[in-house]
Simulated assay, not measured.
Amino acid sequence: MDATAAPVDTPPVGSAFPPELHAGLPSGVGTGTFSTARHTTGYLSAGRSGDPVLLLIHGWPEFARSWVRVLEPLASAGFHVVAPDMRGYGTSTVHPQVGDYSTEEIVTDMIELLAHLGVSEQSRCVVVGHDHGAPIAWNIATHHPELLAGVAGVCVPYMPPGAALTDHIDRELYPAAEYPYGQWDYLIAHLSLAEKIAEEFDADVPGVIASIMRAGSPRHLERRAPNASVRSRGGWFPDGPPRREPDPRVLDDTEYEALVASLQHTGFAAANAWYRNNRANAEYAAANATGGRLTVPALFVHARYDIVCTTLTTSLPEPMRRAADDLDEAVVDAGHWVAQEKPAELVAVLSRWLRSLGLAR
C-alpha cells in the first residue's frame, strides 16, 4: 500500500476534547478556532489583534500549549502571538490518511489561518517553527515570501531542495557501517515500523512523554542519541518507556497532564504521519517560489545540547547558510525542548532579532 494512502486512526466522531488541554492557562492567553471546508485549526493567542502577527508552529509530538511560556512575553513586545494546534494535534482536525499530513497540506492550513488573522502582502507576519514545525516555517518562507517580514527556525535548520540530513552526520560518533543513518535512524523507523511505533506510543503516552521530554546537558553530547538505534531495537521503547515522572525543568504537572491528554485524544498515528510523506514533501519543496533561497530575513536558533539536531558540532547548518540572503544565528543553552526548558532565553533571542528588523518594541 502506498504510505500516503494508508489510514490514520482518528478519535471517535463527536468525542469531546479533554478538559486538561486548556486547564490553567495564564489569564492573558486566549483560545480560538478557525474552520474552512478542508480543515479546522484550534489555537492559543496572546496580545492585541491589531498588532503584527507572530505565528508559532510546534513540532512533534506537541501542541499549541508547548509555546505557553513564551506567548505573553512575546505579545508584550508588540505582537499578536498565535500558536496553532497543527493538524493531527490538540483541538485541530485529525485527518484520516497519511497523505493528509504532507508539508503542502500543512502549509496550506497555515496560509488559510494567516489570511483569517489579517495577514497579507500589506500586513506581513513573522513565522517561527520548532522541530518539525521548522520545515513548515521554512516552506512558508520559500513558497509565500510575500506574506513574511521574517522567518525563524528553532533546532532544525533550513534544508534547501536536494540537501540531505545524512550528509552531515558525525561519523566518529556514528560509524557508517553500524549507523548508516546516524541519529536520523528514527526517521526511517517511522516508515518501516509505522504501525508498531504508533501502537507502542499509544499504549503508554504518559511514559513516552516523561521519557523523551527531558532537559539537555553537556554530557548528552558525549554519547549517541537513542534515536540512532530505533530500528535495531525494534521500536523506540520495546521494553516500555524507562521513565514515569516528567522532568520539571521541561514540563510542570499541568503542562504534562495537558500534553498527555492531547496525545491520548488524537493518538500518535496522526502525529507520526508527518514523517511519512518524504516523496511528496521533496516535490513540494522543489516547487518553491524563490529558487530554493530564503529571501526574507531569517533567524536560526541552535539548541546547544540537542543530541539529534547537533547543529554546533556538525556541518548541518551549512546548506542553510549558503541559501539565505539575510541570516542571523543565536544559541540557547538548552536541549531540544527549548521553549519549555529556557523560555526566557528564547524570548530574549527572538526579541533581539525582531528589534533588529524594526518589528518589535
Rank of each mutant, 00 (worst) to 15 (best):
I140F: 02
I140K: 00
A141T: 07
T142W: 00
T142L: 02
H143L: 05
H143G: 04
H143F: 06
H144C: 05
P145N: 07
P145S: 11
E146W: 04
E146M: 06
L147A: 03
L148G: 00
A149F: 05
A149I: 04
A149R: 15
G150T: 10
G150N: 08
V151Y: 04
G153I: 02
G153H: 02
G153E: 01
V154Q: 01
V154H: 01
C155A: 13
C155T: 12
C155D: 10
V156C: 05
V156Y: 01
V156M: 11
P157A: 03
P157L: 00
Y158E: 03
Y158Q: 04
M159D: 01
M159A: 13
M159F: 09
M159T: 03
P160L: 09
P160D: 10
P160G: 09
P161D: 13
G162C: 10
G162V: 07
A163W: 08
A163H: 07
A164Q: 15
A164C: 11
L165R: 10
L165K: 02
L165Q: 07
L165C: 08
L165I: 08
T166D: 15
T166C: 13
T166K: 10
T166S: 11
T166Q: 12
D167T: 14
D167R: 14
H168Y: 14
I169M: 09
I169P: 00
D170H: 10
D170G: 05
R171M: 08
R171Y: 07
R171P: 01
E172M: 08
Y174M: 05
Y174W: 03
P175E: 06
A177M: 12
A177G: 15
E178R: 14
E178H: 12
E178F: 01
Y179G: 10
Y179H: 15
Y179P: 08
P180Y: 12
P180H: 12
Y181R: 15
G182K: 06
G182M: 07
G182A: 12
G182F: 09
G182R: 04
Q183P: 13
D185K: 06
D185F: 05
Y186V: 05
L187W: 11
L187A: 09
L187N: 06
I188M: 13
A189F: 01
H190Y: 12
H190W: 04
L191C: 05
S192L: 13
S192A: 12
